[in-house]
């Protein structure tokens, strides 16, 4: 009996189970077939995709245990400062199985040549640096969902009113990560720390993406949806 019990995998952390269920469905970019292939078509598709992703991210955040307990103002502040990190982490996760390719959506992946042709090379190179980091760590789905929720809760927005409440959310997620790694990867005692240490590069990559999209907004050549504009402006 003792042997059978020790061979049984540890039960999955309830927070991890919850976050796995809360994972959004796959999104498709559906580039406009009316536009000629090139930077305008790719950028239009990306801006449209980003707008739909923000809607999905807002719905996802509401499913994170503890997030709805924050005041509405703090929910807004947290999302306004961290949505792009959540979005970028999702792109990095989707790109993990593909060597040197950024998977913006299921039907929209760019290799170096494609990214250069689409005027997205600088952004893609930054994203690939993050992807390589997660690939080297062999990031798992359970870790990805925890890290994504932590990226949101790790908001350093100066507009947060009840910082203690946000800190509590952060602590619960941090504890879930430690518990998960402790039970699933006891042979790697520094793994949780290694994962948390990817958050600075995630923020840096999101800042590069913000710079890219803000440049597009200022260029005025690509139509952007209202929610996307609202969220971009909240970060400036």
């Amino acid at each position: 009996i003792a042997t059978a019990t020790s061979k049984k995998p540890a039960p999955i952390n309830p927070m991890v189970s919850h976050l796995l269920v809360a994972e959004p469905e796959k999104l498709y970019a559906m580039p406009d077939p009316a536009l000629p292939d090139g930077p305008l078509r790719a950028t239009s598709a990306l801006c449209d995709l980003a707008d739909r992703e923000i809607v999905v991210i807002i719905g996802w955040a509401k499913n994170i245990p503890g997030f709805p307990a924050l005041s509405l103002a703090d929910q807004m502040s947290v999302l306004q400062s961290a949505w792009l990190e959540v979005l970028v982490l999702g792109v990095a996760w989707r790109s993990l199985p593909c060597e040197d390719e950024v998977v913006f959506a299921e039907d929209f992946a760019l290799d170096e040549e494609g990214a250069r042709a689409a005027g997205l090379w600088e952004l893609s190179a930054a994203l690939l640096q993050l992807v390589r980091k997660y690939r080297a760590l062999r990031l798992e789905r359970e870790e990805y969902v925890l890290l994504k929720a932590l990226a949101l809760a790790n908001s350093d927005s100066v507009h947060i009113e009840d910082m203690a409440a946000v800190q509590r959310l952060r602590d619960v997620l941090h504890e879930a990560l430690l518990e998960y790694e402790g039970s699933r990867r006891p042979e790697e005692p520094r793994r949780a720390g290694k994962l948390l240490l990817t958050l600075p590069l995630l923020r840096q990559t999101a800042a590069r993406a913000l710079h890219h999209f803000y440049g597009i907004k200022l260029g005025g050549k690509v139509p952007m949806h209202k929610l996307f504009l609202e969220m971009l402006e909240a970060m400036m």
Partner: peptide, 19 residues
């Protein structure tokens, strides 16, 4: 809130329609 009205509405109402 006026400047961030879509986010405000989505958080409050939870409906992604008519954006």
């Amino acid at each position: 809130t006026e400047r961030h009205k879509i986010l405000h509405r989505l958080l409050q109402e939870g409906s992604p329609s008519d954006i």
